[in-house]
């Protein structure tokens, strides 16, 4: 690899760390308001737990509030709001990747028994196995 003749030069790894780092220092009030909103959401989620709704609706409500709370903590307390694009990316990466695990696992459990409902698959596998085994036993017994 031939090297250029440029001299000196700030070590700026392909422009990937943005030089002069302007540090944002949020005010105490900013953190205080964040805390207040989180507290309101906490009260809301506990209250929602006592609403007379179906379990699945309850899960949706609780998770929605939890996600909002988590996003607030990530953006305000963890200062992602003031972070570089790359920090945004990392902050989302783990949660995004979890979707793969959840999606596949749930796809399995939701659809696992479905195909057995088609004609010819009325019995569950375990019933088939038991009937076949007992059938064989009967045949042997008749010999």
């Amino acid at each position: 690899m031939a090297k250029s003749h440029s001299t000196g030069g700030h070590h700026d790894a392909a422009g990937h760390h943005d030089g002069g780092h302007a540090h944002v220092i949020p005010s105490v009030g900013f953190y205080f308001w964040t805390l207040l909103v989180l507290m309101v959401l906490l009260v809301l989620t506990v209250w929602a737990g006592y609403w007379k709704v179906s379990v699945s609706a309850g899960i949706v409500i609780a998770l929605t509030i939890a996600v909002v709370k988590a996003v607030i903590v990530i953006s305000n307390f963890m200062n992602v709001k003031f972070g570089t694009k790359q920090v945004w990316l990392w902050a989302g990466a783990g949660f995004f990747w979890l979707i793969i695990l959840f999606a596949y696992a749930f796809a399995d459990y939701v659809s696992r028994d479905h195909w057995m409902k088609y004609p010819g698959w009325e019995q569950t596998i375990s019933e088939r196995v038991t009937s076949e085994v007992s059938g064989e036993a009967k045949e042997e017994g008749s010999h």
Binding site: S4, H10, H11, D12, A13, A14, H16, Q86
Partner: peptide, 11 residues
């Protein structure tokens, strides 16, 4: 790899 590359060492 993200942060320690020499100057000019683009992706």
């Amino acid at each position: 790899i993200h942060k320690m590359r020499a100057p000019g060492m683009t992706w």
